[in-house]
Simulated scan of single mutants.
Amino acid sequence: MTLLNLNLLAAAVPTTPTWSFNVALIMITANVFALVVGRYGIKVKGVGPSLPVQLPGLFAGFGLPELLGITSFGHILGAGLILGLAQAGLL
């Protein structure tokens, strides 16, 4: 590879912010948003294994698959928000 190609590749790597309270707040907000979307968006709840512990009423009717799906969606959404805001210089 030439030096020009290496410079172009280095410019394509997004800036990754270090952990801070703002980063944590964005991830928590994204997961809460995903929880609200899942609470009202999942039509058939409770299919599959149930959660091993009793949780508050917000999680009523959720099984393990719903909880894992919702938190996975929340983390994907949060990671996208964090990387996007860091690349825009807002974080």
Rank of each mutant, 00 (worst) to 15 (best):
L68S: 01
A30D: 00
L85F: 10
M27N: 06
S72P: 02
K45M: 14
I82F: 04
G84D: 06
L85P: 08
L68W: 00
L35D: 03
M27K: 03
E66L: 00
L4T: 12
G46F: 07
A34Q: 02
P49T: 08
G89R: 08
W19F: 15
N31H: 04
T71P: 01
N22C: 14
L58W: 05
L77T: 09
G41I: 08
P56S: 07
L68C: 04
A12N: 06
T2S: 15
F21E: 15
Y40F: 11
A34S: 07
L6G: 14
I26Q: 07
L85K: 08
L67R: 02
V13H: 13
L3Y: 12
R39Y: 04
V36C: 12
F59Q: 11
G57P: 13
N31E: 00
V44W: 15
M1A: 12
K43G: 13
S50V: 14
L90R: 03
L64I: 13
L51I: 04
I28P: 07
K45S: 06
Q87G: 15
P65G: 05
Y40N: 11
F62T: 08
I82W: 01
F59V: 14
T16E: 07
S20E: 06
L64S: 05
P52S: 08
G46C: 05
L68V: 02
I26E: 05
A12S: 09
F33T: 12
P52L: 05
V13F: 05
A30L: 02
P52M: 08
S50Q: 09
F62I: 09
I70T: 00
L6C: 15
T18N: 09
P56V: 12
L90F: 07
N5K: 12
T18P: 00
Y40R: 13
T71C: 00
I76Y: 04
L55N: 10
L25T: 12
P14C: 15
A34P: 15
L64M: 09
N22R: 14
P17G: 06
A60F: 13
N31M: 02
I42E: 00
I82Y: 02
Q87D: 08
G61M: 04
G74R: 00
I42V: 10
G84Y: 00
L35W: 02
N7S: 08
K45Y: 11
I76A: 10
A88F: 06
G57D: 11
S20H: 07
G46Y: 03
I26T: 09
G57V: 12
G46A: 06
A10I: 12
A11S: 10
L25F: 07
E66N: 01
P52E: 06
V36R: 15
A10T: 12
A12K: 09
I42R: 00
T29Q: 01
L91I: 03
A88S: 11
G61R: 04
L90K: 03
L68Y: 00
I76R: 06
G80E: 05
